[in-house]
Simulated assay, not measured.
Amino acid sequence: MLTAEVAVYPLKTSKATNVISNSINTLQGNNVQYSVNSMNTEIKGNKAEIFSSLEAMFTEAENSGGEISMVVTISNASK
């Protein structure tokens, strides 16, 4: 199992909250566990699910917000 911490930062938009929310909402259709924190979202799942989820989040943010920055930390270490 992997854990990813991901933060989406919309650039050049006045609708950053909507872009971030739309990006996080893509996780509902994926087979991962996730929790939304004040600064990032933590995702847990297998390798394929994590990378698929990150791609879905990035694509949604890009489609709804244009330019974005996404910061991701991925770990396979047990907590």
Rank of each mutant, 00 (worst) to 15 (best):
M1K: 10
L2C: 13
A4N: 11
E5S: 13
E5N: 06
E5D: 14
V6R: 00
V6E: 00
V6G: 00
A7T: 13
A7S: 09
A7L: 12
A7G: 13
A7D: 01
V8A: 01
V8T: 04
Y9M: 06
P10A: 06
P10G: 06
P10H: 04
L11P: 03
T13G: 06
V19A: 11
S21Q: 15
S23W: 01
I24M: 01
N25F: 13
T26Y: 02
L27V: 01
L27P: 00
G29C: 09
G29Y: 12
N30P: 03
N31R: 14
N31W: 07
V32H: 02
V32L: 10
V32F: 03
Q33T: 11
N37G: 14
S38D: 12
M39I: 07
N40W: 08
N40A: 09
N40F: 10
I43H: 00
K44D: 05
G45A: 10
G45Q: 08
G45H: 11
N46P: 00
E49Q: 15
F51W: 15
F51E: 03
S52T: 06
S53Q: 01
E55A: 05
M57Y: 02
M57T: 02
M57F: 14
M57D: 06
F58W: 12
T59I: 09
E60N: 08
A61T: 05
A61E: 12
A61R: 02
E62A: 13
E62Q: 14
E62Y: 15
N63V: 10
N63P: 06
G66N: 04
E67H: 04
I68C: 07
I68K: 01
V72E: 06
I74H: 08
N76R: 07
A77N: 14
